[in-house]
């Protein structure tokens, strides 16, 4: 997955929100990267550090929350935990699963000065 492109998008969102709020600097950026999303959190963090240098967010710490994956199992008729895409249902062993959680990539909050 293209973490550099995502880091650039993230930085733009961070800077837009920080400027809207009249912030002088961004101290902390909180994102949620679901465990089923197509992002490698460590690569994103590294890319964000690089992309943000010299900006309002240049000193910001990136805090990454990793919400766990879940899926709707057609056989159980219920939401079940899902560790990774392609896994079978941990409850019934069935394979008809549609992800319904843990695939998000969201900027949640900023801490600014």
């Amino acid at each position: 997955m293209h973490e550099v492109a995502l880091a650039s998008s993230l930085l733009q969102l961070v800077l837009d929100n920080a400027r809207q709020q009249g912030a002088r600097s961004v101290r902390r950026v909180v994102v949620a990267i679901g465990t089923l999303s197509h992002v490698e959190p460590r690569a994103l963090a590294q890319a964000f550090t690089s992309a943000s240098m010299g900006t309002l967010a240049g000193e910001a710490e990136l805090a990454i929350e990793e919400p766990p994956g879940s899926a709707w199992c057609f056989d159980c008729g219920d939401t079940v935990p899902l560790a990774k895409l392609g896994d079978d249902c941990p409850r019934c062993g069935g394979g008809k699963l549609v992800v319904n959680g843990g695939d998000e990539m969201r900027l949640k909050a900023l801490e600014v000065l």
């Binding site: 969102l13 912030a23 998000e104 969201r106 909050a109």
Partner: peptide
Amino acid sequence: QDQQARLIAVEQDILSRN
């Protein structure tokens, strides 16, 4: 007054621009 840290809730998809 100048140093006050504030928390801003955002909740935007990282790919929202794209």
